[in-house]
């Protein structure tokens, strides 16, 4: 039995296979609509998340399966003091697979240690969110038709943004990748990510706080939100939240086949006027998220 706790749990070959299945689902959805008949996905969301939970639930439903679960800790037995491990073992009696979001980092790993069914980490605090990374990889592959030979710009909160760190980890395993890391000084990529991932794998990168200087070089522009909940000081948040706003003017120098991504929710870091630009891929990205989760559920349930 396999779990997905961290993106590193999957080999490059396995990721390629998942992308292959997701593409087949997109092309032939009817082939998959009863693959998970009589199977149940439990969504254990100890903190609220609209997108990820609905994406998992939609994924299971499109595979013909059913969904049970809760969407906040107050409606679960965690509010009575039950441990993550016990909750998981109990839910494993009623379901075939579990997707878990938890505010405490490492909770899905703890759940997996004693679980009788596969566990998918649907986000644990600021630590890891592997299905977002899979979503990003499928988006890049579908939009650029490759995962190699890419210049990727990451923009915004590169310090606290777990999606950014996971994407760097995942893309560092492909050939000829270059990163342009665009952030204010206070929100730069942490040293350990640079040393233990980028430099260790000889991945070239440039750090800058000027988005316009490098926008013309990019194949991918991955925008992120400055998240209020990651700041202890409201003043710092207010000062940094509007640092980068992507608008039509800034995009003038960008390539015609640039792919603009964002894990959503967007606040104001991408102007609404950009939504109609054919290079805006962030809503398509949300759709790809459902397909890759369908592929993942099939893999972990060992359904061909």
């Amino acid at each position: 039995m396999r779990h997905l706790i961290d993106i590193k749990d999957l080999s490059v070959q396995e990721i390629d296979e998942l992308i292959g299945v997701a593409k087949d689902i997109i092309a032939h959805p009817e082939k998959y609509q009863e693959k998970c008949k009589y199977k149940k996905l439990a969504t254990l969301f100890f903190e609220p998340s609209t997108r990820t939970r609905l994406s998992f639930e939609a994924a299971m439903m499109e595979l013909g399966g059913n969904v049970i679960g809760f969407s906040e800790a107050s409606s679960s037995s965690a509010s009575k003091g039950e441990s993550v491990s016990d909750t998981t073992r109990m839910v494993g009696c009623y379901s075939d697979i579990i997707a878990m979001r938890h505010p405490k980092e490492g909770a899905p790993l703890v759940a997996s240690l004693k679980s009788t069914v596969p566990i998918i980490n649907a986000g644990d605090g600021g630590h890891s969110h592997p299905t977002q990374t899979l979503t990003d990889l499928l988006t890049i592959f579908c939009e650029k038709n490759r995962l190699e030979n890419l210049t990727i710009g990451l923009c915004g909160d590169l310090k606290f943004g777990r999606t950014v760190h996971s994407l760097i980890t995942a893309m560092s395993r492909y050939k000829n990748i270059k990163f342009i890391l665009i952030s204010p000084d206070e929100l730069k990529v942490p040293e350990y990510v640079k040393k233990e991932i980028l430099e260790k794998n000889d991945i070239p990168y440039i750090e800058t706080n000027d988005i316009e200087e490098h926008i013309g070089d990019l194949d991918i522009l991955y925008m992120t939100r400055v998240q209020k909940e990651r700041f202890f000081n409201e003043e710092d948040y207010l000062r940094l939240k509007d640092y980068y706003i992507l608008n039509k003017e800034k995009l003038e120098k960008a390539k015609q086949d640039l792919c603009i991504m964002h894990p959503l929710p967007r606040v104001n870091e991408i102007a609404v006027e950009v939504d109609d630009d054919p290079r805006a891929c962030y809503f398509k990205q949300a759709r790809y998220g459902k397909y890759i989760r369908m592929a993942l559920i099939l893999k972990l349930l060992e359904i061909k």
Partner: peptide, 11 residues
Amino acid sequence: PRCITSIEQEL
């Protein structure tokens, strides 16, 4: 303080 070890019993 955000680690699961801060709340999970006997971990």
